[in-house]
Structure formats: structure tokens, C-alpha cells
């Protein structure tokens, strides 16, 4: 594997953060998922060269790493936005208009759920439940939860994120 390689749609892959993560995980039991989580935190997604490197490090086939990465909703194989908007469509939000909020966010960002804005500012996702049911309809931007949303409030919240 070359030192640095260009991934489709992605920036140049810099292995330094990954190597640090792997070094920390040496010898840990059940390390694959935590490694994937930290890798995604570092790169924003799981770059192809990282998947290959992790497989080699753990001495498992690449297909296994891929299998785990695609099983869990949290992992992404393509670059994502700097800010992740998760609109809740859990039961309580469903009953109190979560779909309309999703529509409002989609209109505001001009992307569909699952997509990323071309400037990589936002990725829009649907989520089954944030557990903020008491304040439905709700959404989460990165690690912050927003409740009692209206179309107007959606626009205000999104403005805060660059």
C-alpha cells in the first residue's frame, strides 16, 4: 500500500491518526467495533485504505471488517458532512409530525435523507428514536438534541452550524 492514496470522492488518506488508534488497541478484546468507531471519528467515515489496514492489523479478512462495518447503521464508507443532522422518526415523533420536520430539513438543505450537501456542510439522516420523546418532534445535530421543533425553529438551528 502506498504511503498516501487518493480515495474516490475523498481527500488524500493520511494513515497517521489510524496508526495511533491501532497502537492504542493492541491486544484489546473485541477491538474491531471500537477501532471502527474511533477511525470514523478521526476521518468522518471509513476510508477504503483504512478498512484494509484494520483487517491486516487484526489478522482477519477484509470481508469481515466490511461485514461488520455495513451491519451497523453508524458506520459509513463514504465521506460525510461536517455536521450530521439526525431527524427523529420514532413513534412519538411520528405521532407528532416528525415527517414534516424531516421534510423541512430536506427542503432547507436541499438533500434527501441519507445524502450529503455538495459543500460537505451537512449530512441528513433519519433515526428511529433519539429518546427525546417527551419533546417530540426532535432532531439531533452532531451530539446536541433539539426538541419541540417547528419548521421555523429548524431553519434557526441549522444556521448555527457551518
Amino acid at each position: 500500500m502506498p504511503e498516501k492514496e487518493v480515495h474516490e470522492n475523498g481527500p488524500v488518506f493520511d494513515p497517521t491518526p489510524l496508526e495511533a488508534i491501532l497502537e492504542k488497541s493492541r491486544g484489546a478484546k473485541g477491538a474491531l467495533i471500537p477501532i471502527l468507531q474511533q477511525t470514523q471519528d478521526a476521518y468522518g467515515y471509513l476510508p477504503r485504505p483504512a478498512v484494509a489496514r484494520i483487517a491486516k492489523f487484526l489478522k482477519v479478512p477484509e470481508s469481515k471488517v466490511y461485514g461488520v462495518a455495513t451491519f451497523y447503521a453508524q458506520f459509513h464508507l463514504h465521506p460525510r458532512g461536517r455536521n450530521i443532522v439526525r431527524v427523529c422518526l420514532g413513534t412519538a415523533c411520528h405521532v407528532r409530525g416528525g415527517e414534516a420536520i424531516l421534510g423541512a430539513v430536506a427542503d432547507e438543505l436541499k438533500v434527501s435523507p441519507g445524502e450529503t450537501t455538495p459543500d460537505l456542510r451537512f449530512t441528513l439522516e433519519r433515526v428511529a428514536c433519539l429518546g427525546a420523546c417527551g419533546l417530540s418532534p426532535a432532531m439531533m445535530v452532531n451530539d446536541t438534541t433539539y426538541g419541540r421543533l417547528t419548521k421555523k425553529r429548524v431553519a434557526e438551528v441549522l444556521k448555527k452550524y457551518q
Binding site: 473485541g30 471500537p34 471502527l36 468507531q37 461488520v68 451491519f71 451497523y72 447503521a73
Partner: peptide, 26 residues
Amino acid sequence: VKEGAGAFVCGEETALMASIEGERGM
């Protein structure tokens, strides 16, 4: 503390353990 990775089925006990072991949560 083990952080889940976004799979509802991991609430099932055998799937949960598979997930802690670093496998697909089945």
C-alpha cells in the same frame, strides 16, 4: 462501557454479546 453502533437487534442478548465481541450483532 461499550458503545453500540446502531442496530436495534443488539438489544437481544445473544446479539448484544456478539456485538461486544466485535462481530455483526446477530
